[in-house]
Computed example of a mutant assay.
Amino acid sequence: MEENRMKSICGIDCTNCELSGACSGCAATGGQPFGAECLVVQCCKRGETVLDTLKKKLIAAFNALHIPDMEEVTELNALKGSFANIEYAFPNGQVVKFWDDNRIYLGNQLHKKDSDRCYGIIADEKYLMVSEYSDYGADAEIIVFKRWN
């Protein structure tokens, strides 16, 4: 039973994941390991090269933003929404989150050059976001949020 619990569709080794206790694996859940869609699984179901093509397009889209002091994007990783779903405070006091905590997206964290702050990048098939923040998402601000595809 334990072996079936962690089978993945995309080939990721789920046995070392820190969330393995809360996840039944995407094969067992039809590509919804936490109850919401996994972007990686969606791509894998559509063909062998779809995920690589999507990653290349997204990497190009992030790099085309030419954000000052952001490292070049070279890799995107499968990322559970709750890891990147920072709260953003708007001037009117409203606090907003943009992503589904249980969905799997593509993203990464990049260091801001000559700073102790980071850039968080995250995307799905329609939208991409770049945010800047301090440790553990403190003082987060949106740099870019846009439809890319």
Results as ranks from 00 to 15, higher is better:
35 G>Y: 14
35 G>V: 05
35 G>P: 08
36 A>K: 02
37 E>N: 14
38 C>M: 08
39 L>G: 04
40 V>F: 07
41 V>G: 07
43 C>A: 09
43 C>H: 00
43 C>I: 01
43 C>V: 03
43 C>G: 02
45 K>M: 02
46 R>M: 06
46 R>K: 13
46 R>W: 00
47 G>W: 03
48 E>P: 03
48 E>H: 04
49 T>P: 02
50 V>P: 00
50 V>E: 14
51 L>I: 08
52 D>I: 03
53 T>A: 14
53 T>W: 00
54 L>I: 06
54 L>Q: 05
56 K>L: 06
59 I>P: 09
60 A>I: 07
61 A>Q: 03
62 F>D: 00
64 A>C: 03
65 L>P: 01
67 I>H: 12
69 D>S: 11
70 M>S: 15
72 E>P: 08
78 A>R: 04
78 A>H: 13
79 L>H: 04
79 L>P: 01
81 G>Q: 06
81 G>I: 11
82 S>R: 14
84 A>V: 11
84 A>S: 12
88 Y>K: 07
88 Y>R: 08
90 F>I: 05
91 P>A: 09
92 N>S: 04
93 G>R: 08
95 V>F: 00
98 F>V: 03
98 F>C: 03
100 D>Q: 13
100 D>R: 06
101 D>I: 10
103 R>C: 15
104 I>F: 04
106 L>I: 15
107 G>T: 11
108 N>M: 07
110 L>M: 07
112 K>R: 10
116 D>I: 01
117 R>C: 04
118 C>K: 08
118 C>P: 00
118 C>T: 01
